[in-house]
């Protein structure tokens, strides 16, 4: 436990020094806030940019606040996933490549302590960034569109967090398997994209899929489904995250050369 805390503090300090604590929240906030703002100013943007014929008139239905937040979640689902994978891909392979890992593992550190420190620090940074971004977006949405209840925002955030945890855990597992950061990002993104695509295409057979949680978070905002439909994906997501974490510890322990 003590070694876990030491490693965890080191991860936090490293993320502070290399600026991850700055760029990830800032990029996420820009990504989130741009959704309500661009939606609000869409008529003006089109008027200024488009070569519309004289007298053309476009009517935009004003979306509800919930719809704007739901669109933000879908932004998180694409660019957000990319950002989280990119922020996580190098955390183990970097230490393996420059050999500093030999200095750590020559001390009484267990594979579990090491992986757990990486995992928890990444989860905290990612979820903090997501939370800040989501809260700021909610503030602008309330300002520019119809208000959204805070309880809906919080519930959808929690559901969505599980998907983020799943992404990070999967990436960390791949990071213990491969040495090359590009490969780690490639494999992780391909898998996550395939999972999302399959979940969208054959919804009927993919009710258990962690990617369902993304739609789940949206549905909570829009109030169009009862919550207990998500119990299955919540369960499989938590379970698969635990299994992936255990696998990461297992493969890390079996590494031949650090």
């Amino acid at each position: 436990m003590k070694n876990f805390l030491t490693l965890f503090q080191k991860e936090m300090l490293e993320s502070k020094r290399n600026g991850k604590w700055i760029w990830l929240p800032v990029v996420m906030m820009i990504l989130g806030v741009s959704q309500p703002i661009s939606t609000y100013y869409m008529p003006q943007i089109i008027e200024k940019a488009g070569n519309l014929p004289e007298g053309a008139k476009i009517e935009f239905p004003v979306p509800t606040g919930a719809e704007v937040l739901a669109a933000t979640l879908s932004q998180y689902g694409t660019i957000g996933t990319l950002l989280f994978v990119l922020a996580t891909m190098g955390i183990i392979s970097h230490e393996r490549q420059n050999n500093v890992l030999t200095l750590i593992m020559a001390r009484p550190v267990s594979a579990f302590q090491y992986i757990a420190s990486k995992w928890s620090s990444q989860v905290i940074i990612a979820l903090s960034s997501l939370f800040l971004s989501y809260i700021l977006t909610w503030y602008y949405t309330n300002l520019l569109f119809s208000p959204v209840r805070w309880i809906d925002v919080l519930t959808s955030f929690l559901i969505y967090s599980l998907w983020i945890i799943f992404i990070l855990t999967f990436t960390i597992w791949i990071a213990t398997l491969l040495r090359n950061t590009g490969g780690i990002a490639g494999v992780s993104l391909t898998f996550l994209a395939a999972l999302s695509l399959l979940t969208g295409l054959i919804t009927k057979y993919m009710k258990w899929s962690p990617a369902t949680l993304r739609n789940g978070a949206t549905s909570i905002l829009m109030h169009n489904q009862s919550n207990d439909i998500f119990l299955l994906p919540i369960f499989t997501t938590i379970l698969s995250s635990i299994i992936l974490l255990a696998l990461a510890v297992f493969t890390f322990r079996r590494l031949e050369r650090f």
């Binding site: 080191k10 490293e14 420059n98 050999n99 500093v100 030999t102 200095l103 020559a106």
Partner: peptide, 10 residues
């Protein structure tokens, strides 16, 4: 105490 051939640090 172990010192590798090319010690690297953070």
């Amino acid at each position: 105490g172990f010192m590798p051939q090319h010690p690297t640090f953070f």
